[in-house]
């Protein structure tokens, strides 16, 4: 078996250790003897998303957003939409998550059109939602408990076309109001969770890998790994957050 991963915008969306997710996906495949290739597709690159099995988009700074949107609206947005519709697995974090939605409206009412692949939108707020947090994935996303670090001022609201990734048990989540966290649509997993997300949450990592592998190979069972370190880091934070 082999899996082809595309890392979108590693040159500008690379804050908060999000690249740790790529490393985690790669290692957990390699440790099971599954081949993996990772393609980096920065500004100006033209990746063939339809040929990828898993696409990763991380969070970034506001500073480069203009450059990024220009690049995105040069046709990459349509390609992202098409491959999502086609069932390619996506993992999008924070800024990458917001970008998959329809738009972002800043606190002072300036509206920025995003990709529009997912039925959700984000509104900027004055209060930054920041800190360690925890949520429980819905059964259709594996049902595991996730610990992470959120750091966003945008409040994301989900439309009827998407489901939340999970329910917040400690912290803010999508908007600090409705207890939802992240979004699920087809094979898209989107969340605010940095940390990075996957290394401390190996169950979710394996669920995402399984999703991508099964689209390609049919039913797959992943060999269990020794997750002693991962469980220690996860358990420590879960206990701190009262889980």
């Amino acid at each position: 078996m082999n899996l082809k991963i595309c890392h979108m915008y590693p040159d500008v969306l690379n804050l908060y250790g999000d690249r740790g997710n790529i490393l985690c996906l790669r290692r957990r495949l390699e440790w099971r003897g599954i081949d993996v290739t990772v393609e980096s597709a920065g500004i100006g690159a033209r990746p063939h998303l339809a040929e990828c099995d898993l696409v990763f988009i991380g969070g970034g700074q506001d500073f480069e957003q203009e450059v990024l949107l220009e690049d995105l609206h040069s046709g990459k947005d349509e390609e992202v939409k098409a491959s999502i519709a086609d069932g390619v697995t996506f993992l999008a974090i924070c800024g990458g998550y917001q970008m998959l939605g329809t738009y972002y409206e800043t606190f002072d009412g300036h509206r920025c059109d995003f990709i529009g692949a997912l039925d959700l939108y984000t509104v900027g707020s004055k209060q930054r939602m920041i800190g360690n947090y925890m949520f429980t994935c819905t059964p259709e996303s594996g049902g595991s408990t996730v610990v992470g670090f959120e750091n966003h001022s945008g409040r994301t609201h989900l439309g009827p076309g998407v489901k939340p990734l999970g329910t917040v048990t400690s912290g803010f989540g999508n908007n600090g109001e409705d207890k939802t966290e992240g979004a699920r649509y087809k094979n898209v997993f989107a969340t605010y969770s940095h940390g990075p997300l996957l290394p401390k949450n190996p169950e979710l990592c394996d669920f995402i890998l399984k999703t991508a592998l099964e689209r390609k190979y049919g039913a797959v069972s992943l060999e269990p790994l020794n997750d002693e370190a991962e469980r220690a880091a996860h358990g420590e934070m879960a206990r701190r957050l009262g889980g």
Binding site: Y16, D18, G20, P196, P199
Partner: peptide, 9 residues
């Protein structure tokens, strides 16, 4: 820094 994710950078 309360966010330790920087160790992955």
């Amino acid at each position: 820094g309360t966010d330790v994710s920087w160790i992955w950078d």
